[in-house]
Amino acid sequence: MAPSAAPPPLSVTVRAARVAHGSEVLFDGLDVTLAAGRWTCLLGPSGVGKSTLLRLILGLETPERRDGDGETVTCSDGSPLSGRAAFMAQTDLLLPWLTALDNVDLGRRLRGAEDEGNGDAQALLDRVGLAANAGDRPATLSGGMRQRVALARTLMEDRPVVLMDEPFSALDAITRIRLQNLAAELLRDRTVLLVTHDPLEALRLGHRIHVMAGRPALLDEALEPAGMPPRNVDDRKLLEMQGDLLRRLAEASS
C-alpha cells in the first residue's frame, strides 16, 4: 500500500503571528512558511514557544489579531487549514482501552464513520511492522511500538499537512533512528513541521531547519542541508553542520 497516493502538496504560511500568555508575549510578528511536500524542522531552547507555534498552526491555540490583519495561518490553495492537518505528539496519546488497531482507526470512530471497515488501518499497522499486534492494548506494547502505532494513526488521517511535536524524543537512540527512517519514508511527500530538541534529528530529516530564539521569539534564516532525507547519521558534512547548529542553539539559549 502506498500512503503517498494522496492529497496534493500544500504549503502553509504563518504571517505576523502574535501569541501572548498573560502579560508574556511569546512571539510577535513571527513569519514562517512550510514548503509544500517538504519537512521543516524547528529547533530552539525549551519554553521559547515551539510547541505554541505548532499548536497555533493546528488551530489549538488562538493568535491575537489586530484590526486590518489577515488570517494568521493561510494555505497555498486559499482554503483554511483547519481539518487538513494531522497531529503527532511527544507522548503517543493512545487510548488505553482500545486495541492498537482501534487506536489507528480512532479518527473514523470519532467522526462516526465506523462502518467503513478498517482494512486500511490493518494495512497501516503492517506498514509500521505491527501487523501481529493489531489486537494488543497499548499497555502491552513497548514505547517504540506505541509510537509506531501513533505514527500509523497519523497516517490513517491521510492529511496533506502533518505537525509533529518531538515525536521521537522519548525513545532510545536506535529505536529513534529506525522510527525517523520509517516516518521519513511514509511521510515523504507531505508538508511536515517537526518540532525537535535534537539537532541531529533535524539534520537527518529536514529540508529546511529553523532555530527559534528570543522573547518575543523569531526564526532565523533556514538552514538547508544537501541531499534527500533521511540522511545517514555518519555523513561527515552532517556532523559538521551539527556543530554549527549546536553553536547557534547555545547562542539562542543564552
Binding site: L60, L93, L95, R109, L110, R111
Partner: peptide, 21 residues
C-alpha cells in the same frame, strides 16, 4: 488534555469526543 487536542485535530464533534474519549 492531549487526547482532547488529538480529537479536535481529528474533527470530532463534542458529543463524539464525550462518547469515545
Amino acid at each position: 488534555p492531549g487526547w482532547l487536542d488529538l480529537a479536535r485535530t481529528m474533527n470530532a464533534s463534542r458529543a463524539s469526543t464525550l462518547r469515545h474519549v
